[in-house]
Every structure is written in structure tokens, then in C-alpha cells.
Amino acid sequence: MAAGKQVFAIVKKDVLAELRTKEMVIAMLLFVILAMVVFSQAFGVILNDLDRVGGGLLWVAFLFMSMLGLNRSFVHEKDEGCLEGLLMSPIDRPLIFFGKMLGNLLFLSIVELFAVPIFFVLFRLELGASMAGIFLATIFLSNVGIASVGTLLSTISINTKTRDLMLPILFLPVIIPLLIAAVSATGGIMSGEELTEVYRSMRFIAVYDIIFLLVAYALYDYVISE
């Protein structure tokens, strides 16, 4: 099988499983909306100045939501013995990483596509059409980094005694650089900053994505093979 076909087969498997159960995407979306409600109740008045803190709130919600999804995506693999099945199937080992990573990226992006408009409505924010494109591009670019680091680290954490408890401890410090850049980019877009500043942050996110895509791809084989 060609590489693309193999990767596609894994993504298709995850999408099919999700379409049958529908548990992950819906739970993630509900979680994000609930996080927004919690923010609005916890911060109240400050949220009138949301142009400046809105980007941060959005990313806090997205990061925690992504950990929820990342954990789920491997619980099945581990509990139902799917990972052994994957390892025994005639798929090149490193391609398993891309398959799982693309699946995670897809679910993350779908949830965010619904969550962003809700966020803007709930917090009475507005963005011009041209800005909305850059905004979504930033989010998607960051998702690539989240999915790469997250796929690698959640595969590790699911194989430990503490399982899903381990993911935040490993994932959050590693994702901090991405968070800093993502908050600065989205915050810059929302408060109408110079676009050069925004592009600088986006460039950093792209560099982070490439580095961790390569690192995770190179290391993934060592995580899954005994």
C-alpha cells in the first residue's frame, strides 16, 4: 500500500468509530461551551474588556478540551487491543503516527469550527471577514502543533500507571511556547494590532509545528514498539 493510502486507512478507521459512537466530538464541544460559561461566571466584569483577554480564554478552553480528546483517542486503542491490531497490520510503523495525528487534528478542528462562533456570540465579539480568515488560520496552525505533541505524549501517558492523569503533566509544559504565540496572535487580531506582529507569532507557531512534527514522527516508533 502507498503511504498516503495507509495513513488514510487509519484516519478512516478513527472517523468511522467516531461516527458510530459520536461520543468524542460531542463531549469535547460541550466541554468547551461549559468552559466558556465557567469563565463568564468566574471573571464577570473583566470580560467587558474581552478584546485583550479573549484570546487567552479561548486557548485555555481549547487546550483543556484537546487533552480530553487526546486521552479518549487512545483509551479505545489500548482497552480494546486496537493498538496491537494496528501494530500487526501491514502498515509502516512511522505512518501510524501520521494517521493518529491527522485524526486528532480533524476532530480538534471540527469542534473548534463550532466553538469559535459560539465564543464570539456569547462574549459579544466581532471580527471582519478578512480578519476571520487569519483568525481561523492561526487556530488551525496551532492545532497542528497540539495534535503532533499531543499524539506522541498521550500515547506515552496511556501506557503509564496513572494514564490520563499523566497527560496534562507532560503536555502542558511542552505546549507553553505554542500557547504564548497563539495567545499573542489571536489577541493581536482581536484587538486590531499591526498585522506584522500577528504574522511574527504565526511564523513562530509554524516553526514550532515543523519541529515537533519531525521530533514526534522520529520518536513515535520508540513509543509503540516494545
Partner: peptide
């Protein structure tokens, strides 16, 4: 063996992440 593998993998990720964190910190607010 898993302890050794995971430890080694995370020590590499962490080492890669240190310069990235530093550069990110210089992006703007800090």
C-alpha cells in the same frame, strides 16, 4: 524497558522545548 524508553523520549522533547520557550517568551507580552 518502557521506563527507559519513555524517559529517553521525554528528555529529548524537553531539551528541544527549552529554546522554543525562550524564543516564544520574547514574542511580545513578556
Amino acid at each position: 524497558s518502557a521506563k527507559a524508553r519513555f524517559g529517553a523520549i521525554f528528555s529529548i522533547i524537553a531539551a528541544v522545548n527549552v529554546p522554543l520557550t525562550f524564543v516564544a517568551g520574547r514574542l511580545d507580552s513578556l
